[in-house]
Simulated assay, not measured.
Amino acid sequence: MALSLDPEIAQALAPMAGAMADATPPAVGDIAARRAMWEPIIGAAGTAQPIPDDVKTSEHHTTADDGARITMRWYTKDGAAPGPAVLFFHGGGYIFGHIDLFDGPVSRYVSASGVPMLSVEYRRAPEHPFPAPLEDAYSALRWLHAHAAELGVDRDRIGVMGDSAGGGMAAGLTILARERGGPKVARQILIMPMLDDRTTTPDPHIAPYLLWSYDDSLTAWPALLGEAAGGPGVPATAAPARLEDATGHRPAAGLHRGRPARRLPRRRRRLRHQTQPRRRAGRIPPAPRCPTRVRLHRLHLRRRPPRHHRPHPRPHIHLSRHRARSPHATGGVCRRSTQVARTPLPAATESLGHRHEHTEAPRGRAGIPLRAACALTAGRLPDSMRAARHLILT
C-alpha cells in the first residue's frame, strides 16, 4: 500500500524537515548527538509564531522525595477567572528538551484557552532513569494541589497534559496517582504521546515520513528503562500502553498519529494497542488520510424530516451545483424557505478542498477539528487547546 504525505501537513512540517535535511541521523544510542540536533529545531519551532503578551509567568520550586530540586514555571493569562489548571510536561523522548524551549507553545496554549499551566522541568534520562522523571512529575502534582487556593485553582479540575514524552509522562502520572490514592487528576490531554516501549519493528509504509525515527525510539526507551526496555517487567507507569486494568482511570483525550484519540475505558477491560483503537458506534471516526477531502457520509448533514413533518408545499430536492454554492449553504446543505438543496458528493468534496467561505471544517464530539488532528508540530496546534478547554471546563 503506497502512502503519501498530505500537502497541508507537508507544508506545516517543511521548516522542521528542512532543518533536518542536511543533518546526518545519529547512530542508535548516541544521546549527545540527538540533543545537539533536536534542541535547536524545537527552539526554532517554538518561536515560529509570536509569543502572546497577555500571558505572565512566575518561577516556583519544589523538592522530590530524593531531595532533588525541581523548577516549575506558572503561566497565567491576564484577567482569567479562577478555575481549572493544567500540569504540562514537555516532549523530547525523555532524553532532551527543557521548559525554556517550550515557553512559546505553552504561552500560546494559555492565551488561547485562558487556562493556566504549570510547566515542569523534570529530570532527563539517561542521567536520571525511571522512576526519577515520574517522581518529579508526582511532586509537581502534589505541589499544585497544595497551592491551589493561593493560585486560584479548583483542585477538582486539575488536568495533566504533554506532547511526545510529556504525553507519556502525563499518562504515567495519572496511573501513579491512582495507585497511590491521589492527588486527583481530572483529565488527560495527550498529544502524540510516547506510550509503548515495544514498537521496535519498523513499518516500511510510514518510515519514510517519520521525524522521530525507530532509531530514536531504540535510543530513548533504553535510556529511560535500561535493559528492561521491551521486556516483560516494564510497569505501566513507565510505558502506559502496558496498562491492563483501567478501573478508576481518568478519561484521556488527545491527538495521536493524526487521529482523535479515544477515551480510556473506565470499567475493567483489557486495553487494545493504543495506536489501533477499536471502532465503536458513536465514537469519533478516524481522520481521513487526506483531511481536506472528508467523507461526507460521516458528517452530520441535515436530513429530510419525516413525511408527516414536512412543510407544504413539499420541499424540492435540487441537486445542481449552483444551489450548493449559494451563500445560504452550510456544510454542503442549502436551506431556503420552501426548498432544500443538497450538494452532490463531487461538488461538496471540491468545496471542502478549496475552502470556500461558506464551508465549515467538520468537528468531532470533543470539538477537535479533523484537520487539526493531523497537525503534529508545536506551532500547528492552536485548536488543540480549544479542545483542552472543553475537556477541562466540562
Rank of each mutant, 00 (worst) to 15 (best):
Gly79Ile: 01
Pro285Met: 06
Ala36Leu: 09
Ser107Lys: 15
Gly332Thr: 01
Arg142Phe: 04
Ile95Gly: 11
Ile392Gln: 07
Ser113Tyr: 07
Gly91Asp: 11
Ala229Leu: 14
Thr199Asn: 07
Ile70Phe: 06
Tyr214His: 09
Leu376Gln: 08
Ala177Asn: 11
Ile51Gly: 01
Ala375Cys: 06
Arg263Leu: 13
Ala177Gly: 13
Gly79Val: 00
Arg293Ile: 00
Ala81Arg: 13
Ala2Ser: 14
Arg242Thr: 09
Val120Gln: 12
Pro202Lys: 11
Leu151Tyr: 06
Leu118Ser: 02
Ala239Arg: 03
Arg142Thr: 13
Leu381Thr: 15
Leu391Trp: 03
Pro7Gly: 05
Ile41Leu: 15
Arg304Pro: 00
Arg178Gln: 11
Phe89Ser: 13
Ala12Arg: 13
Arg336Gln: 01
Glu357Lys: 03
Leu144Met: 15
Gly353Trp: 00
Arg321Lys: 03
Pro84Glu: 05
Pro346Gln: 02
Asp197Asn: 08
Pro251Asp: 11
Ile175Asp: 02
Glu227Ala: 15
Ala388Ile: 15
Phe89His: 11
Ile317Gln: 03
Leu176Arg: 10
Leu134Glu: 12
Leu264Arg: 14
Trp143Asn: 09
Asp136Asn: 13
Thr47Ser: 09
Arg250His: 04
Pro369Asn: 05
Arg242Met: 12
Lys184Glu: 11
Ser4Val: 05
Arg198Cys: 01
Thr200Met: 09
Ala125Cys: 10
Ala2Ile: 08
Gly230Asp: 09
Thr343Trp: 02
His128Tyr: 15
Ile158Ala: 11
Tyr122Asp: 14
Asp66Gln: 04
Tyr138Phe: 13
Arg307Trp: 09
Glu59Asp: 14
Leu118Ala: 00
Leu210Cys: 07
Val234Pro: 10
Pro50Lys: 04
Leu210Lys: 14
Glu244Met: 10
Asp154Gln: 03
Pro40Val: 12
Asp154Tyr: 07
Asp197Tyr: 04
Arg321Trp: 08
Arg157Ala: 15
Pro25Trp: 13
Trp143Ser: 13
Pro286Gln: 07
His328Cys: 00
Arg278Cys: 05
